[in-house]
Computed example of a mutant assay.
Amino acid sequence: MGWVCLLLGLIGVLLPLLPTTPFIILAAYCFSRSSRRFHQMLVGHRLFGPIIRDWEAHGVIPLKVKWISSTMMLLMISYPVFFKPLHWGIDASMLGVAVIALVYIWSRPSRPRQDSNPSSKPELRPQADSADSA
Rank of each mutant, 00 (worst) to 15 (best):
G12P: 07
H39D: 11
P19E: 04
M1W: 10
S110G: 02
F31P: 10
I51D: 03
P118S: 03
V103D: 11
A57D: 09
F38M: 12
S70N: 07
I61Q: 02
S133A: 01
H87S: 12
G49L: 07
F48V: 01
G49M: 05
R46G: 14
G59Y: 02
Y79D: 03
V99N: 09
M1H: 13
M72C: 06
L95Q: 11
G49E: 03
P62D: 09
S70D: 06
I24N: 03
L8N: 14
I90C: 09
I11A: 09
S32K: 12
P126E: 15
A57V: 03
F31R: 08
S130A: 13
L74K: 09
S110D: 04
V65G: 08
M41L: 13
G12H: 02
A92D: 13
P118W: 06
P22A: 04
M73Q: 00
M41S: 11
T21I: 00
R125G: 02
I100W: 11
H45L: 11
P118H: 07
S32R: 14
A131L: 02
H58P: 04
A27H: 00
W106I: 12
E123Y: 01
S69W: 02
H39E: 12
P62C: 01
L6H: 11
Q114F: 06
S110Q: 06
E56S: 04
S32G: 10
D132V: 09
C30W: 07
W88N: 11
D91Q: 15
R108N: 05
I105S: 04
M1K: 03
Q40S: 10
S70G: 12
W55C: 09
R125H: 10
G96T: 14
P122H: 09
L26D: 07
F31V: 05
I61H: 00
M41P: 08
R108P: 08
A98N: 02
S133K: 10
H39P: 05
C30Q: 11
L75I: 03
V81C: 08
A134G: 12
P50S: 02
S119C: 10
G89Y: 15
C30Y: 04
P50I: 01
L7Q: 13
L74R: 05
I77V: 08
I68V: 07
W55I: 02
S116L: 07
L47A: 14
V13W: 11
Y29H: 00
I11T: 12
A98F: 12
V99C: 13
T20K: 06
Y104T: 13
S34D: 14
I51F: 11
D91Y: 14
S130N: 07
I68P: 08
M73F: 06
M94S: 10
I100Q: 06
P126H: 13
P126Q: 15
P112V: 07
F31K: 03
P118R: 01
P19G: 07
P80F: 03
D132H: 04
L102N: 10
S35Q: 12
P22H: 06
